[in-house]
Amino acid sequence: MAEKLGTKLNFVQKDLIKKSTKEPGRVFTVKEVANSYGISENTARA
């Protein structure tokens, strides 16, 4: 049986999906995501 998608995503991924559904068409940059969540740019890219 397949796992639910929510169990495979981390907090940042879930939060970005939530923000993108509230603001369709919004573009997220690597630098913005890294700064907003306190993660490295490489992690933000992944």
Rank of each mutant, 00 (worst) to 15 (best):
G38F: 07
T43R: 12
L9Y: 08
K18G: 01
E23V: 07
V30C: 10
S36W: 03
A44N: 04
L16K: 03
N42R: 14
K18L: 10
K4V: 10
V12R: 13
L9K: 10
L9C: 12
S36C: 01
E41T: 14
N10F: 02
K14Y: 03
F11I: 09
K31Y: 02
F28N: 06
N35Y: 04
K31E: 15
N10S: 12
V12W: 01
K22C: 05
R26F: 06
K4R: 13
I17R: 07
L5F: 08
K14V: 00
V27M: 10
K22Y: 04
T43H: 10
V12M: 13
R45E: 12
L16P: 02
E23F: 00
T7D: 15
S40Y: 03
I17P: 00
K4M: 09
F11R: 09
G25M: 08
R26S: 09
K8C: 10
T7P: 00
M1S: 14
A44S: 14
T7N: 13
V30Y: 04
A46Y: 10
E41D: 08
T29N: 03
G38N: 15
V33F: 04
E32N: 03
G6F: 11
K22V: 01
K14M: 12
A2T: 06
K22W: 00
Y37A: 07
M1D: 11
V33I: 15
M1L: 14
A34P: 00
E32P: 04
N10G: 07
V30I: 15
G25L: 06
V33H: 00
A34Y: 04
G25C: 05
A34H: 01
F28C: 06
L9E: 07
K22G: 01
E32T: 03
K31D: 14
A34T: 00
V12C: 06
K18H: 09
K18Y: 14
S20W: 04
S40R: 04
A44Y: 05
G6C: 08
F11A: 10
S40H: 03
T29L: 06
P24K: 09
K31S: 13
D15E: 15
R45C: 08
F28A: 00
K14Q: 13
L16N: 02
T29A: 02
E3W: 12
G38L: 05
K31A: 13
I17C: 12
K18Q: 10
S20C: 07
G25H: 06
K4T: 11
V12F: 01
L5M: 10
T43V: 08
A2P: 15
